[in-house]
């Protein structure tokens, strides 16, 4: 047995070690990506045996005729923007605070991180219940505070539904960025801070000239990760509103799913997927280049 192995060239051994991971990855992650592009140029209802090539008809349909697509695209973009800014600012503040010498740090960290490890679909269920217009927490609180005029149909009112869902997402995602920031803050050298203090730098000065510059890589990573995470927004919308009311909380990932898997227009669903893939690539490719450059610089 060992003889056979020894007889393999080192690079062949490498390929053997690599093969299982590579094959599974190519078959079930890379191939579907190619398939979705191909599918976006064809028409298939999920029932008939053959798909038909239709050129760019699906793209034309989603861009000019689909009453939901533009709303879903807009929601995705606005959601992504908000998801990059709001939770990360809070997370940054929380991390800075947790990095100070205050009592109860570890319990506080646990509290803020706990929502992260909960299934998104459970987060959706929890918040949907809190938003219940008749018996939920929010309207209950408002009533008991004598603010019944503020009572709202949190998930049923088109104007606020998306933001109600976003608050649930916020609750879930702050802890994730917080941990990353905390790790970044650990790497800020205390000697530097002390030196700056001795030089007469105030609280703001230390932050501005020592802490912040040291955190730039962390901030980049956090921003990119939350960008990608928010493009994925699926579970929480599916669980809380299902895209409603009147498709006003629909997002691209879920609209692609709805078109393909529920309405059976696979071609259009694929076209929506491709649009979302392109948006993702706009983020991913520059980030990868930045990362590889940094890697090379470290070496």
């Amino acid at each position: 047995m060992s003889k056979v192995r020894l007889s393999l060239r080192p690079s062949t051994q490498g390929y053997v070690l690599l093969a299982p991971a590579l094959i599974v990855y190519l078959l079930f992650a890379v191939y579907p990506m190619i398939d979705v592009i191909r599918m976006s140029f064809s028409s298939w209802n999920g029932l008939s045996p053959q798909a038909k090539f239709v050129g760019v008809a699906n793209y034309r349909a989603i861009l000019t005729q689909d009453p939901v697509f533009w709303g879903a695209l807009w929601n995705t973009l606005i959601w992504t923007t908000a998801a990059v800014i709001v939770p990360n600012l809070i997370a940054f503040g929380v991390a800075l605070a947790l990095n100070q010498n205050i009592p109860g740090r570890s319990s506080l960290r646990i509290i803020f991180y706990l929502p992260v490890i909960i299934a998104s679909i459970a987060v959706a269920t929890i918040w949907k219940w809190m938003y219940d217009p008749f018996f939920g927490l929010f309207n209950g609180l408002l009533t008991s505070w004598g603010l019944s005029g503020w009572i709202m149909d949190w998930l049923g009112d088109k104007k606020i539904a998306l933001w109600s869902v976003f608050v649930a997402h916020l609750w879930q995602s702050v802890g994730f960025s917080m941990v990353l920031f905390l790790a970044g803050l650990q790497s800020v050298s205390t000697t530097l801070i002390e030196a700056a203090r001795i030089d007469g730098a105030g609280r703001w000065g230390v932050f501005r000239y020592v802490t912040l510059p040291a955190l730039v890589p962390t901030i980049t990573v956090v921003i990119v990760l939350s960008l990608i995470n928010s493009l994925k927004a699926f579970d929480i919308v599916y669980g809380m509103t299902g895209g409603g009311p009147a498709q006003s909380t629909q997002m691209l990932a879920m609209w692609a799913y709805t078109q393909s898997m529920q309405l059976g227009v696979f071609g259009r669903g694929a076209a929506v997927s491709v649009v979302l893939l392109l948006i993702t690539l706009v983020v991913v490719i520059p980030y990868m280049r930045w990362m590889f450059k940094r890697e090379d610089a470290v070496r």
């Binding site: 579907p32 990506m33 990608i228 898997m261 696979f266 694929a270 893939l277 990868m288």
Partner: peptide, 23 residues
């Protein structure tokens, strides 16, 4: 090959549920 894997770390599968299903 490493770059190919790194690309995969950022590929959201939520985008292509239907083709995964087909596969």
């Amino acid at each position: 090959l490493f770059a190919l894997f790194v690309f995969g770390t950022m590929l959201p599968f939520q985008v292509m549920l239907a083709p995964i299903f087909r596969q």
